[in-house]
């Protein structure tokens, strides 16, 4: 029970830190890291849910695995967009409109 609480508290704290960071930070990489921390918070809660004494529920584990893949995909797409914008800016260096 204590273990369960500890996992949940950590998960919720990570989620909260992530939300705070995602809203406050202006830098895209910081925002992305914050979003990934949020994701880890959710996964912690799911892992705590999976454990029932000796029995382990496989469904939350599968959800976490799927969640990780989706998080990788989302992060990669955001990084790609950031780099595209940076490349465009490098080409138009000194352009006042950018």
């Amino acid at each position: 029970m204590t273990q369960d609480l500890l996992y949940n508290a950590t998960g919720i704290a990570l989620f909260g830190i992530g939300v705070f960071g995602a809203i406050v930070a202006a830098h895209i990489i910081r925002k992305l890291i914050a979003l990934n921390i949020m994701g880890i918070g959710v996964f912690m809660v799911l892992l705590a849910t999976a454990r029932h004494g000796e029995i382990t529920d496989p469904v939350p584990h599968a959800m976490v695995l799927t969640g990780i893949v989706v998080a990788v995909a989302g992060t990669a797409l955001c990084l790609w967009l950031t780099l595209r914008i940076r490349l465009l800016d490098d080409v138009n260096e000194g352009d006042p409109q950018r």
């Binding site: 705070f20 809203i23 930070a25 925002k31």
Partner: peptide, 23 residues
Amino acid sequence: KLEFRKREANRRELPPFAVYALG
């Protein structure tokens, strides 16, 4: 106010009081 230059790493999107309120 999205930023991606290294020198802007510590910039915040919100004014200080809003940061504390949000926290």
